[in-house]
Design a protein around this nucleic acid. Structure first.
Lengths: 349, 349
DNA sequence: CCATCCGATTGGATCGATCAAGCCTTCCGA
DNA sequence: TCGGAAGGCTTGATCGATCCAATCGGATGG
């Protein structure tokens, strides 16, 4: 097979210089339409593809994003990152970007990887998941002017409005509110909440959603609501223990809204089909056992993350240079996927 | 911030030429130890990192592997690819390789992506998952001399020994044999098998493992074994229907060995804790509900795939140039993760 | 009719690394 | 003493695309 064609070859065929070919690709408005068509025909004829590495060397940009693949020790919800990754790759492709993976053992190691990948011009920016309070990673990235966007709000007091920190998140508050409303609408009155220990930015946000819906209903007192909530780590067994303890207090429970599908599964396994349960994340397990769950619109999240990172210009990864608040973060709304729960009922029968 | 240091800067500090710096990095044996140490000190002092794109342009290699991220429609087992991806990224990093993602809608589209990524020198080779009979992708890659390795055997008649097709796979035959032995050892006599419709390379291989273990036991006749097996698509509901039909035939069933955790979950949901079940893939769900399952050693698979791709030399991605059979494919053995099944029992009680 | 201007196009230089030769020592045996 | 070889290091050329300054052609204005 002959070597791959270059801009020079294309130019030769089209009867123009290599720079004109380059202009057709990067600044079409500079080239006269007639010339452009000739060049495009030559490109098609030769099957020319720009050499990514050469372009990167010259421009000092890679058009590639880095994302860390977590060790994924956290059970059922693991597939969430997986789906996000797929959405991100697809959306990135549409914008002419590529996605490169890396792994790290801890935040410090991750920072070392940031440095390594950026210095080698392997990536232009990063997408972070699972941010936490006073995250050293975001601090490092800001300090070193590396473009990035996080999937998840920064939960620090002022961090959320730091113009240099771009973020996209799913409105868990709205999700739990809808889930709770759904349960209330289906006849339940005493809807309990099973979530994660406070403080947890994401977890507290979801709990507030449940609380708001219950307060809007106006039937139960604040004290009664306090008695209807339980906390545990995100784990099936923990959920079973927690819901058993809650039931043991003697409080009446018609339904349970949960902060995750793992917790919801634990509740279902413990109490069987007797009460309605709603989970969060709409994992494959939820589909398999017929559990209603809140679905995160990961395509929107991915698209939003890339839009923020690319800025308004759309030409390359710019990071936080944009100014308007709308272009610095985005909150997308999840939606409930209702299901007739039949699976676990069968197990109990 | 000053621009990143180059080989020239390092050479200046160390008092040598740029080529010597390059040699220290790529062919240390050519450089005198004393000189090497000087250069290494200068590298450390300046925090020098080779510019990946420049190197790629010159060498025409990217040190990057491409892997397709599937749409992941297949439910519970989805997390398997996720874990493989993590293992692959980690193993690749150890060998100085990077992993880049891409998506595709169908095999033909995937082939277009192959061409695009390779022509742009974005990747040197590919890792394929979920290969099937007469896979057009492998044919294209072989024809165009693109290095690749598949996770999964080629199931065509002669394909398996095609020296140009490198592959790694998990010995499902051995896995199901062990699962079946485990069930037999725990007191069950009539161990049924629930798998996928034939022909399915992977599925048929697993069924043969069950069959072999049962035949070795020597209690049941061939006809009896035929009556103890059922088939369905890989789906919880399908499994419930299939096992119900099998039970309806009146055959005695003490335990069920399944081709996947999805199927195992379906069986459990249908029959409850009355009989023992073993799944396959050891997905998070299996852990959550306490289901015994066959675990695929994905670290070994990833390591094997990269070893094959890198060849004996270990210097760069070579594809199939190696000759010995041992260096063209690798079959790794899975192992059973036994669990006391308690979760579903609770749901039934 | 010539000077000016502007958009379209061109050739030279460049990004950072590696390849391929070539140069300078040093060391050996004739 | 000298030819020759080998080791260790240096210099010129190169990979493919883009940046920059210069050029070209045609239209316009004085």
């Amino acid at each position: 097979m002959s070597p791959l064609p270059t801009v020079l070859d294309v130019g030769r065929v089209a009867g123009v210089s290599r720079q004109t070919v380059s202009n057709v690709l990067n600044s079409p408005e500079l080239v006269r339409p007639a010339t452009r068509e000739k060049v495009e025909a030559a490109i098609a004829e030769l099957g020319y593809r720009p050499h990514a590495s050469a372009r990167r060397l010259r421009t000092q940009k890679s058009s590639t994003l880095g994302i860390r693949l977590d060790p994924m020790t956290n059970g059922i919800s693991g597939s969430l990152l997986d789906r996000f990754l797929h959405a991100l790759t697809e959306q990135a492709d549409r914008r002419g970007l590529r996605v490169m993976l890396f792994t790290a053992t801890d935040p410090d190691d991750e920072i070392r990887q940031f440095a390594r990948l950026r210095d080698g011009a392997d990536v232009d920016g990063f997408v972070l998941t699972a941010t936490f309070h006073e995250d050293p990673r975001t601090e490092w990235l800001i300090e070193h002017d590396v473009p990035f966007v996080t999937f998840g709000r920064p939960w620090g007091i002022d961090d959320m409005n730091d113009p240099r920190h771009l973020w996209v998140d799913v409105d868990g508050h709205s999700g739990l509110r809808d889930a709770t409303r759904h349960l209330l609408a289906s006849g339940a009155e005493n809807v309990a909440y099973l979530g994660w220990p406070s403080p947890s930015g994401t977890g507290d946000d979801r709990r507030r959603g449940w609380r708001e819906a219950m307060e809007a209903r106006g039937v139960l007192s604040a004290a009664q609501l306090d008695a209807l909530q339980a906390e545990t780590i995100d784990d099936v067994q923990g959920a079973r223990d927690a819901i058993r303890s809650l039931i043991a207090t003697g409080v009446r429970i018609d339904a349970v809204a949960c902060a995750s599908d793992s917790l919801a599964l634990g509740v279902l396994l413990e109490v069987g089909p007797t009460i309605a349960v709603v989970g969060y994340d709409n994992t494959p397990v939820a589909g398999a056992i017929g559990l209603s769950s809140i679905e995160q619109p990961l395509d929107e999240v991915a698209a939003g993350a890339l839009d923020l990172l690319l800025g308004d210009g759309g030409r390359g990864i710019v990071g936080w240079t944009s100014s308007s608040a709308d272009t610095r973060h985005r909150l997308v709304t999840p939606h409930l996927v209702p299901r007739e729960r039949t699976a676990i009922a069968g197990a109990a029968g």
